[in-house]
Amino acid sequence: MSNFRYKVGPIAKCVFQTQSPRSNLWCTLMQYRFYPRPTSFPDYFQNPIFRKEDQAKLIESNELTKLAALPVKPPAAYETSSVYHDPLVSKLINHVMKMGNKKLARNLVEKAFENIKRIQIERYHLATTPEEKAKVVLNPKDILHKAVENSKPLLQLLPIKRGGITYQVPGPITEKRSLFLAIKWLLEATNDKERTIHFPEQFAWELLDAANNTGKVVKRKQDIHRQCEANRAYAHYRWQ
């Protein structure tokens, strides 16, 4: 497995993410609001800075005066400065949402978190030694972050047509696409559930499995990686 990593290094360097703290990476990814259709705000409007720590940073680096003079879009309803705001959770809720029913989507995700919490607290109480107790992660948001991290693919297969045959060529993947694929696979795995089991319960199980590096989603990611390794020979087709 380590061999594979070194060989793929140059292609996937752009994609390797470190164990960076939550706020920095996701902020830069998630705060970029781009709508391809014309919206009510023209392009020169700036995106809002609604987190207190970001505002503090701006004040320190003296950029606040520059921004204060520019027109700024208002923050959306889910962009709060509350302590519990997490851009990844907002993104997840958006992906779960169907037909604009944000209320239901948020409810489902919150129930899933509650289920995760209950399962983890049960495990915590069943664990006997303090070391084992310390290993149990109790915060559902931490579990979500770990699960998404573990199910993010590092490469993707691009269909490239040469001489009438479509080859699946391993290629780089952007951060955004990799995050999108991780969330999409998690939701797909959850929706292949039995009729009687509810979405939040199944979702909780999927997240716990993924955080533990087991389960369907991680398997799918590993399948992709294996296929990339197998199709290593076609990599040069990208630059023909």
């Binding site: 302590v83 519990y84 919490k117 607290i121 915590y124 109790l138 915060n139």
Partner: peptide, 14 residues
């Protein structure tokens, strides 16, 4: 104490 709530202090106010 029962591990049901976690987070920084400001959560209580919110």
């Amino acid at each position: 104490d029962r591990l049901w709530l976690r987070g920084p202090r400001e959560t209580e106010g919110e």
